[in-house]
């Protein structure tokens, strides 16, 4: 033990604690990680370790019209939901941070509503109403449902960005003669852009992966990817599913990497101007 450093406490305890933490991480990652090698096995049933390497099940996925259509439909719904949730979420966040809102507590409760209300409750309730409104199985129906599910996250992401952004810059822009809308376009939006981009990203993945509500508001020929997976899993644990699962995990990794990139961008923007830097 070197002098000057606080003594490390409980060597053995610390070791056990770290070992336990790593074990938990393995527990968190292992199931999904194990599926990836299984998906490249040529055998008809899942095997670990795989008996060889083959992209047979990926090929089958791309050759199956149902899988491809479900994927495209999910992508469409995801993109529309991402745009919708980001636009509506940004508007809501702006009103909350910069505006005067009566009944703010009600608005805040409504925002967390779609998170704390169990998705099963929302799903059957939407099923009931969508039947009457003829929204079942429609893109509009999925998009509206997914926008509502993604909104809380979109709003909180933009809120966080707005809180980090120096509101005096908006005053400065107004004093320069910019209208409210010009201020938003030229100053606020560029400053919170990384936050808005992450909001869109996470709204997309929420919609793309959403299974419960989709399960109820799909109809026979328009179904999302998760709905198709749900049906197939219930049916049999085929290796095509392992391929789909692996691709979805890769998509998640891509989303997180992009999200991290946006966060770094946001950090750079929020960094206060350095002082005392001489020319």
């Amino acid at each position: 033990m070197t002098a000057g450093r606080p003594p490390r406490q409980g060597g053995v305890g610390r070791l056990l604690l770290h070992a336990f933490a790593y074990a938990v991480i393995v527990f968190l990652l292992l199931p999904t990680v194990l599926v990836a090698p299984m998906s490249v096995s040529p055998e008809k049933y899942l095997q670990f370790p795989p008996s060889g390497f083959s992209l047979r099940w990926y090929g089958e996925y791309f050759a199956d019209r149902e899988w491809v259509e479900a994927t495209l439909f999910s992508a469409e719904a995801g993109i529309i939901s991402a745009i919708g949730a980001t636009v509506v979420g940004t508007m809501t966040a702006l009103a909350l941070v910069r505006g005067r809102v009566r009944g703010r507590a009600v608005v805040e409760l409504l925002i967390i509503g779609p998170v704390v209300v169990p998705h099963i409750a929302l799903a059957v309730a939407m099923f009931l109403v969508y039947e009457q409104l003829r929204l079942t199985g429609t893109l509009l129906g999925f998009a509206m449902a997914h926008i509502v599910l993604a909104l809380p996250f979109a709003i909180f992401t933009v809120l966080a960005a707005l809180y980090r952004f120096d509101a005096d810059l908006e005053m400065a822009a107004l004093s320069c003669g910019a209208s409210r809308i010009a201020t938003f376009r030229h100053v606020t939006l560029p400053m919170i852009a990384p936050g808005v981009a992450s909001a869109a990203l996470f709204a997309f993945i929420i919609s793309f992966d959403e299974a419960v509500v989709s399960f109820f508001i799909s109809d026979l020929d328009r179904k999302t990817l998760p709905r198709k997976m749900f049906e197939d899993i219930d049916f049999d644990v085929s290796p095509v599913l392992a391929a789909v699962a692996t691709m979805l995990s890769l998509l998640t990794i891509l989303v997180l990497v992009l999200g991290h990139f946006f966060k770094q961008m946001a950090d750079r923007r929020a960094a206060p101007a350095r002082e005392g830097k001489t020319p």
Binding site: L169, M171, L174, S175, T183, V187, R269, A273
Partner: peptide, 19 residues
């Protein structure tokens, strides 16, 4: 409204647009 008053304003903190 503030943006219609045609005033110049300088704030305590340097409110330059960083982007």
């Amino acid at each position: 409204p503030a943006n219609k008053r045609n005033l110049g304003m300088v704030f305590q903190r340097y409110t330059l647009f960083p982007h």
